[in-house]
Amino acid sequence: MTAEANIKPANDLLAETAGVMAVVVGPSGAGKDTLMNLAARHFVGRPDVHFVRRVITREGDAGNEDHKSVSDADFDAMEHAGAFAVSWEAHGLKYGIPAGVRDELARGHLVIANGSRSALHRFQSAFPRLKVINITATREVLAERLMARGRESREDVLKRLERSSLTVQGSYDVADIDNSGTLEEAGRVIISVLEALIAR
């Protein structure tokens, strides 16, 4: 799959520079989906704030995210047709950000998408005004949350956390949010970050 072929270079996106694309990233267990859902409820009814419904090659009822579920073949066909502003692969799945987000950005709106740290270079190429929101937590908290899911052994979880980085690598405009404490605390921070982007 050649996702890069469907990314427009920044100098071809002059009409799309008015709005801001905020991409939310973070390690498993940091509470990324939960915080995004909380923020979406806060901004419900706001015509200038849009939370992206991603296209993913997984079952519709899997995970904690409202997404459009498609087969691998349908995803590839959509990608070939230019249906995505950004697409990437991770953990055996394919993810796509619908091309329609460009229309909202052209109107000067704020668009928020669930992303991946490994795909940030693609977001940066596609969106001239990009804000990265990195949701993190302490390794101890991450380990506790991941083990509570019951999908991995304690040994596997600890090994994965040792290999992973909690920071965003690269020259991006990043807001780090520590979600080690209460959801209410982190929720106030992400809402504040997003409100500041609306005011830009």
Rank of each mutant, 00 (worst) to 15 (best):
R54H: 09
G63C: 10
S69V: 02
D61I: 01
V49S: 09
D76M: 12
F51P: 06
G45C: 07
D66M: 10
D66V: 13
D48M: 02
G63S: 09
G63D: 12
E59I: 00
E59N: 12
G63L: 05
V70E: 00
V49G: 10
A62F: 13
V52T: 09
D61R: 08
K68S: 13
H50D: 02
E65C: 04
V49P: 10
A62H: 12
E59S: 14
D48C: 06
H67P: 10
A62D: 13
D76Y: 00
K68C: 07
V52M: 05
K68R: 15
R54K: 15
T57R: 07
D76S: 15
S69T: 02
H50F: 11
F51G: 05
E59H: 13
G60Y: 00
V49A: 10
G63V: 01
D48W: 02
A73N: 07
D72M: 11
G63H: 02
R53F: 01
D74E: 15
R46G: 07
P47W: 03
G60V: 08
R54I: 07
G45M: 10
D74C: 04
V52K: 07
A73Q: 14
V49M: 08
D76C: 04
D72S: 12
D66N: 14
G45K: 09
P47H: 10
D74I: 03
D74P: 07
T57M: 09
T57H: 08
H50C: 05
D76N: 14
S69R: 04
I56Y: 02
S69F: 01
R58F: 07
H50E: 12
D66A: 14
F75S: 07
